[in-house]
Design a binder for these strands. Sequence first.
DNA 1: CAAACATTTCAGCCTTGGCTAACTTTAAGG
DNA 2: CCTTAAAGTTAGCCAAGGCTGAAATGTTTG
Lengths: 163, 163
Amino acid sequence: MIDSADDPNTDNPGHGDVLPPTNQHVKQYAAVRNAHETELIEDYVELIGDLLKHQGEARSTDIATRMGVSQATVAKMMCRLKSLDLVASKPYRSLFLTQAGEAMAEESSKRHAIVLQFLRALGVSDQTARIDAEGMEHHVSQETLDIMQRFACQLTPGHQREG
Amino acid sequence: MIDSADDPNTDNPGHGDVLPPTNQHVKQYAAVRNAHETELIEDYVELIGDLLKHQGEARSTDIATRMGVSQATVAKMMCRLKSLDLVASKPYRSLFLTQAGEAMAEESSKRHAIVLQFLRALGVSDQTARIDAEGMEHHVSQETLDIMQRFACQLTPGHQREG
DNA sequence: CAAACATTTCAGCCTTGGCTAACTTTAAGG
DNA sequence: CCTTAAAGTTAGCCAAGGCTGAAATGTTTG
Ligand SMILES: [Mn+2]
Ligand SMILES: [Mn+2]
Ligand SMILES: [Mn+2]
Ligand SMILES: [Mn+2]
């Protein structure tokens, strides 16, 4: 155990300089693993919400097409989402969100929009911003999200709509 | 198939408004899946690099401790990293990076540092910035990274001035 | 030097999230 | 209606990334 025990937190630039204290480091990785557990679920639920909203219906074919995965993969995931009480459906019929599912869709969608708008406000191209936002959204804390929102609002004289 | 047909790319805010065109949407999810394939590898390799740099040695115990994961998990991952020719070691001895591993560690570390500095420059607290950066780093394109770096450079020298 | 302790490895086990292939059900067209 | 195409389901495969528990190896110390 050559493990520091000093407190390298006071003024250093952080990453290229010294290792963060072990317990902090552990928290970082744990947070990422944690996010990984929910992010696919959020993406599926968000997509179902979007399909319902914009096409009136969420069929698993459309989900498979948009996600770029097989229908079997979607079916399995829907099974999981049902068991989590986020999605409901009758066999061979289209999909609906439960109350909890709708709440998750709403929240995910808002967060996604903020991250996307932030990136665009930063000057990132639309195409890239969309790709980056799809991944980043799941790793942005509330604190950071608030800052992003303020930032995007300032630099975007366009529209805004948050509840 | 009520799909596509329209081209919602011209001026709309994007997410809360209409669905992105299918092929764009597919690309987003594909990019995320892609990132997921490499991100754990990058984190392990980066950590090994950091341990080598700051403690002279990378033992799998230390990796397990810092990652917050069992030694068996580390062992399996090291096996994989060896098969990818990123890590080398003799049985029961400590770990080293191959040339390719070092390159990956270097690059990952740089990118991680930029994202972290960017978040701090935005005004995110150190603790939160570290956590968010650990996840975000893997979903930041080169284009976005460049912008982040410029942004952080501009705002960093003066430290933060919050209101 | 041998015992005790720490570290590494190995052999299972589990869940997630992909896939294909075969089957069933539904929806559409003639 | 009946046929057929599309959509949904199911079974079984795989790799990744966690875990435990036990065996093997290194290291320290009495
Ligand atoms: Mn999303
Ligand atoms: Mn996403
Ligand atoms: Mn990193
Ligand atoms: Mn990371």
